[in-house]
Nucleic acid binder design. Sequence first.
DNA 1: GTGCTTGTTGGCCA
DNA 2: GTGGCCAACAAGCA
Length: 274
Amino acid sequence: MPELAEVEFFRRRWHEAAVGQKIVRVAVHPRARIYRGVDTDALTEALTGIRLTGSEAAAKQMRFRCGKGASLGIHLGMSGELEACPPGHEPAKHDHLVLFTAKHALVFRDPRMFGRVQFSPGPADPPWWTGIAPAISSPAFSPAAVAAFLRRRARAPIKAVLLMQERFPGIGNWMADEILWRAALHPRRKAGSLSPTEVRALHRECRNVCRGALAKIAGRGGKLPRDLNVNIPDRWLFNHRWQPGGTCPRTRRPLAHATIGGRTTCWSPARQKI
DNA sequence: GTGCTTGTTGGCCA
DNA sequence: GTGGCCAACAAGCA
């Protein structure tokens, strides 16, 4: 599920519940795949008794700062979610990491375990954080940078290219479809075939969809919505893409589905032409 | 049982 | 060496 804006939504859940609070107990499922490469004993020992001091999200990665600069990294993978439960929460089958404070149990739940926990004990920025590409909202995400990337991936379908985190950090399957739909680009178009005008449209809609999704899903700056996706307007493709017999909210014509770039893709044939 | 699923990675091949 | 494609990872759901 989680792409850029959902990640921010879940980050805020933990942040608002627990920043400033001390972690009094840590519960881990040590053999869960989400800990691949992480020493869970060391993680438990390092986190117990220290305070959560802040958090950030970048692309699909979250970083929770604790104690004197240690970093807990969380990637939600395909099915991960974060929740702030009452402090008496009993970890369930897929609750692979639970941080208990006096007031909450911070739960990382992930049935499919494509997610990942990382930990860096020192104050230095860990490589799993510094390696994230410049945000789509940043000046480094320029039309020229997008054009250069599309030239390098010229033969790949544009849908597949939008999923490449090295240039489009935080974009996932539904956001990629939303961007292409708004830019009126067929997902099978070869990346190298876009005109300069189309590249500018793609760049613009990347920014618009990121900004809009953050505002609707994570309540950007304001109050955090109670649930995911409840505020996404019906004028977005998002609310129509999985409906049986779903229609394009702009053309009112039927939507199409196919596997493109290895992923299920939805588009509006009346609007997005090859 | 079958065939999906909003992510990432490594292996294979052109 | 580069780029593109695909299976694998694991569990739940229809």
